[in-house]
Design a protein around this nucleic acid. Structure first.
Lengths: 142, 142
DNA sequence: GTTGCTGCAAAGTGTTTGCACCCTG
DNA sequence: CAGGGTGCAAACACTTTGCAGCAAC
């Protein structure tokens, strides 16, 4: 399991007077093992295999906790459900979403980032986060 | 009222064997007069002033129709509701969303668009649309 | 006069919350 | 053993849908 990640979570938990539980450990473990951009339902189904009594609400609450503690990023590709990816080890990236098969490619382009900063500065806007999604057809679907 | 827009709508409607109604005309008219990025509820409240008997469902259905006919663009800034902007006369642009006051600034940076194309080509991905949202604090809120 | 459209209410979807009981620290 | 966490079900917010009557063509 992600040793560093569990440390991050325990740190956040102790700072905030919260508690480590079996469910939280399990959700974190499965979350780290799972592909990026999981939906809550998908993660819940995986977690059920290890922790058959867990409630969906606990998965929602734990994902919110992971987001607050900096271990997860919440994303929304406009398909009506939240998706999450691990953020602790990974560097920022943007997404190409295939509208045919749902596949998600990650990319990063330093110059795009640079011009975002530039134009924000022009408009006197202070960026705290951003998201860039390209929609279209992947290699296999076009 | 948007003369060209009503033509576009009537064209779409006649091609698809649909019907022009008072409600559809009103929704289109108010939609064109309203600020960009309206939520359905906001538009509904405006439309009520002209058409007090209209149902919320009709506004939803008409916005879907406008989207299909190319007059409106559907957007999602992750606040849990769909927002729309007029697309017929306007050129593509991206958004800076102020997380404090909700204000939305529009911008366009040709080089960002260019590098998007470039990186998509590298990954053999065919872009059909994209969205770039910057989140942060606007001039007045920072 | 067909057939699509409307308003209404009911149903859906994804997510959050209230609560009694349970478990961690 | 105090206070947070859990599972469950109910509540929520937004959106879609079924239907009977209505209106456009």
């Amino acid at each position: 399991m992600g040793n560093e990640e569990i440390d991050v979570l325990e740190e956040y938990i102790s700072v905030n007077n919260l508690k480590i539980t079996k469910q939280r450990r399990t959700v974190l473990k499965i979350f780290l093992e799972t592909k990026d951009h999981v939906s809550v339902e998908e993660l819940y189904n995986e977690v059920l295999k290890t922790e058959p009594k867990i409630g969906l609400a606990t998965v929602y609450r734990t994902l919110a906790l992971l987001t607050k503690s900096g271990l997860a990023l919440e994303m929304d590709f406009g398909d009506g459900q939240k998706r999450y990816e691990s953020s602790y080890r990974s560097v920022h990236h943007d997404h190409m979403v295939c509208t045919e098969c749902g596949k998600i490619l990650e990319f990063n382009h330093p110059l795009i980032e640079k011009y975002q900063e530039e134009i924000a500065e022009q408009k006197n806007f202070k960026i705290t986060s951003h998201k860039l999604d390209l929609f279209g057809l992947c290699q296999d679907c076009k």
